[in-house]
């Protein structure tokens, strides 16, 4: 049976933890709002770029450009976006589980799989385990801006263009809402332009300056950068949302725990007082 002092100490400790989780929840909420704004702000560019590519690809012979060319997928790369920091619920667990699943599946198909990771959590996971070929890792990126994402994108495009990989997949947490993040697997390379081109523009013949091929050649790598940038922003918003919900339930749990401990504390205090009174009464009785 713990003494009164032990229970009191425990209550103080849980209270302190609660303060921390509460603060973390608030910080995550503030960061989430900013991250959400950035996701929304990045959407028009990504959408417009895809539309331009669709129009371009409709006018040009397919497989003209190395980034459009389909090869026999022998060597596959998986880019996994995780977070640098923990304490964000099942965020990293979910994505890593899906990554492992995907790698197993691809290996079962007889493909050679290389894993590229963004984020410290994913790096630690894959480094500790054997059976995975871990390629380039980016971690501690801090706040995502376009340049950082472009670096990642450029690296992937270079490796693909050099023939080191035949297919590249992107695995990240898509931001649905604060409560909901969806682990999403997308094919990054080779680029598959959307079939449905702009119905108002597809019929007309464009003038290209310089040539259509040259424009396509410069716009496709940029498209990859933009995709990486967008998914990084989505990931970051998801991370903040996940952390916010995790810290919220942690704060609530701490509150419940404090309630239970306080009840126990009061009960035991009452028992001690009752015991003391009965001892005094017993003593007085005996002296009569």
């Amino acid at each position: 049976m713990p003494s009164l002092r032990d229970i009191k100490r425990k209550i103080t400790s849980v209270k302190k933890t609660q303060q921390i989780t509460k603060a973390m929840k608030m910080v995550a909420a503030a960061k989430l709002r900013r991250a959400q704004d950035r996701v929304v702000a990045a959407r028009p560019y990504a959408r417009k770029m895809l539309a331009v590519i669709a129009n371009l690809a409709a006018g040009v012979e397919r497989a003209q450009h190395p980034l459009l060319a389909k090869r026999e997928p022998k060597k596959v790369k998986l880019l996994v976006l995780t977070s640098d920091r923990g304490l964000c619920g099942a965020y990293n667990t979910n994505i890593v589980r899906k990554a492992v699943e995907t790698v197993r599946q691809l290996q079962a198909e007889g493909k050679e799989v290389k894993v590229n990771v963004v984020g410290r959590k994913g790096r630690d996971f894959f480094r500790k385990r054997s059976g995975y070929t871990l390629g380039k890792v980016w971690s501690e990126l801090g706040t995502i801006d376009y340049e950082k994402a472009a670096d990642v994108g450029k690296n992937i495009v270079e490796r693909f263009a050099a023939g080191e990989t035949d297919e590249v997949y992107l695995l990240y947490n898509e931001f649905k809402s604060v409560m909901q993040q969806k682990v999403t697997l997308e094919k990054l390379l080779p680029v598959e332009p959307p079939d449905e081109a702009d119905p108002f523009m597809a019929a007309v013949d464009y003038l290209y300056e310089p040539s259509a091929e040259a424009i396509l050649g410069s716009i496709l790598p940029k498209h990859i950068e933009v995709q990486v940038y967008r998914s990084m922003l989505e990931s970051q918003a998801s991370e903040m949302g996940s952390r916010m919900t995790a810290m919220d339930s942690a704060t609530r749990n701490a509150k419940d725990m404090i309630g239970r401990l306080t009840l126990k504390f009061n009960k035991q205090r009452q028992a001690a007082i009752t015991k003391e009174i009965s001892e005094i009464v017993g003593g007085a009785e005996a002296q009569k």
């Binding site: 331009v52 129009n55 371009l56 523009m201 007309v204 013949d205 464009y206 003038l207 290209y208 300056e209 310089p210 259509a212 040259a214 424009i215 410069s218």
Partner: peptide, 15 residues
């Protein structure tokens, strides 16, 4: 080179 666009311009794509 620099170019100007007025309404009704021919479809055109450039860097």
């Amino acid at each position: 080179g620099e170019f100007g666009v007025l309404p009704g311009h021919a479809p055109f794509l450039t860097t």
